[in-house]
Write a protein that binds this DNA or RNA. Structure first.
Ligand SMILES: [Zn+2]
Ligand SMILES: [Zn+2]
Ligand SMILES: [Zn+2]
Ligand SMILES: [Zn+2]
Ligand SMILES: [Zn+2]
Ligand SMILES: [Zn+2]
Length: 288
DNA sequence: GAGTTTGAAACT
DNA sequence: CAGTTTCAAACTC
């Protein structure tokens, strides 16, 4: 994979990094029918090419009907993956049509050498934090105000930048900051700061099991943050001109998201309690 | 589920 | 490069 290192050919080095089954041969890019990416050991990918969260094993099945999953219209193809358990019709994005598929990849690649590179920069990779987690090409939205998932920036949960050519954008960094959801993602390891009642605060015995109940984490801070998130959601829904029912639906989602984070803190507290039966102190490395 | 809306990708 | 068409997903009801 790394037998070619030519400084003046950045495209190929990128391609070899992103698509191991591509090889350089003479002045051409040649696709070798090596192991398909989906069969290669562990594709530990956190984000797909569009910046969406992508659980390594699972992938949203496509429903392509006219592209044969051999154009970038197909998300599977665009992610450099084979179709598997998809609902596509007349799919050629598989080993049966490997040759045709390789030709299609090559075709897309010569149209745009960056075609299979992630559209959204990976979020800080150790020392190399140059790659911003922002859309590299920018969106061109006209009617969604960049407030719906039609917008690739919004879908990837990143702010629009000057690279975008969107009209009436409501997804600027400033816009996002008044929506709270992104500003205060309640860290699941927040501490309880405000005692709910004085009795309980001075109860040494109950402190062992009380932390395993969700309501223990309903501190003022958490309640306030949750409320802020909901208000931010209302704000966003109003900008979208959403109907009341859609607004309520969105609010339910937001509230559920907050509740899950609170519950997550509960779950971690339970784990800590289990660990503390053997250890006096828990080091941060125990948590993860 | 049916029908509409949307903007990237493809095409001219 | 710009204008148009095609396409599959996002969205609405
Ligand atoms: Zn497909
Ligand atoms: Zn597919
Ligand atoms: Zn397919
Ligand atoms: Zn946009
Ligand atoms: Zn944008
Ligand atoms: Zn925008």
């Amino acid at each position: 994979m790394s037998q070619y290192h030519e400084e003046d050919e950045p495209n190929y080095s990128i391609m070899e990094e992103e698509m191991p089954y591509l090889k350089r041969e003479d002045e051409k890019t040649v696709l070798i029918s090596a192991q398909p990416p989906s069969l290669i050991p562990p594709p530990v990918i956190e984000f797909d090419s569009a910046g969406r969260k992508s659980a390594p094993g699972k992938r949203k099945p496509c429903n392509c009907t006219r592209s044969q999953c051999l154009k970038l219209y197909c998300d599977c193809f665009a992610n450099g993956e084979f179709c598997l358990n998809c609902n596509c019709k007349d799919c050629h994005n598989n080993l049966e049509f490997n040759h045709e598929r390789s030709r299609a990849i090559k075709q897309s690649l010569e149209k745009n050498p960056q075609a299979f590179k992630p559209k959204i920069g990976v979020a800080t990779k150790g020392i190399n934090s140059d790659m911003e987690r922002l859309h590299q090409k920018g969106c061109h939205c006209k009617k969604s105000n960049c407030l719906k998932n039609y917008c690739e920036c919004y879908e990837a949960k990143v702010a629009c930048t000057d690279r975008c050519k969107c009209r009436t954008c409501r997804n600027t960094e400033a816009d996002r900051q008044v929506r709270f959801t992104d500003r205060f993602p309640m860290s699941s390891d927040f501490d309880r700061r405000t005692p709910i009642s004085e009795d309980e605060a001075e109860e040494p015995v109950s402190s062992k099991s009380v932390k395993t109940h969700p309501w223990y984490y309903l501190t003022d801070d958490v309640v306030e943050t949750t409320t802020m998130c909901l208000l931010g959601q209302v704000h966003e829904s109003e900008q979208k001109n959403e109907s009341t029912s859609e607004t309520i639906k969105a609010l339910c989602g937001e509230f559920g998201s907050c509740l899950l984070q609170i519950f997550d803190a509960t779950r971690k507290a339970q784990q800590n309690e289990l660990l503390s039966t053997k250890k006096e102190y828990i080091t941060p490395s125990d948590l993860s």
